[in-house]
């Protein structure tokens, strides 16, 4: 039920993100979604790609330090309140969201919310209780 996210450390300077995008493009790896977290000095770019193992080795060969983490992708209706329901559900049992990002899903015109929870297993139970659709990597990339 969890999917793999790769993340990289990047210095915060103009044009820098593109070095990564270009390397992935050259290896014919498509980025499904990405998110950036940054400070004045540095940032972390988090990527969801279909072939994460290959993306990891491409980037590592280029000298980057790559982290792999499990995240949860929940498919919700792209309507007001879609996200609020999820946050309420996990908040009620004391699960904290370390970070999250969202993208719209071609299929069904829905939205996908990507979460990193401090307690993923507990979050999954709560999300399933409210009927949220948790995507497998197969569903996400098909």
């Amino acid at each position: 039920m969890k999917i793999k996210q790769i993340s990289l450390f990047l210095e915060n300077k103009p044009g820098h993100l593109n070095t990564i995008c270009r390397k992935l493009a050259n290896s014919n790896i498509n980025i499904v979604t990405l998110s950036l977290a940054d400070t004045q000095q540095f940032g972390i770019v988090r990527l969801i790609v279909k072939d994460w193992e290959r993306a990891k080795s491409v980037l590592e060969e280029a000298g980057h330090v790559v982290n792999v983490r499990d995240v949860i992708a929940a498919q919700v209706k792209d309507v007001p309140g879609g996200m609020a329901d999820i946050i309420d559900a996990v908040g009620a049992v004391g699960v904290n969201i370390e970070y999250m990002y969202a993208f719209s899903f071609r299929k069904d015109q829905d939205a996908v919310l990507v979460f990193r929870f401090d307690d993923a297993d507990k979050a999954i139970v709560e999300l399933e209780k409210i009927g949220a659709k948790i995507l497998t990597s197969q569903a996400l990339f098909e």
Binding site: T39, V65, N67
Partner: peptide, 15 residues
């Protein structure tokens, strides 16, 4: 320089 042993995916721990 960050290394694979110290890198994290969240800003808080790097800060």
């Amino acid at each position: 320089e960050v290394t694979s042993e110290t890198i994290s995916d969240d800003i808080k721990s790097l800060e």
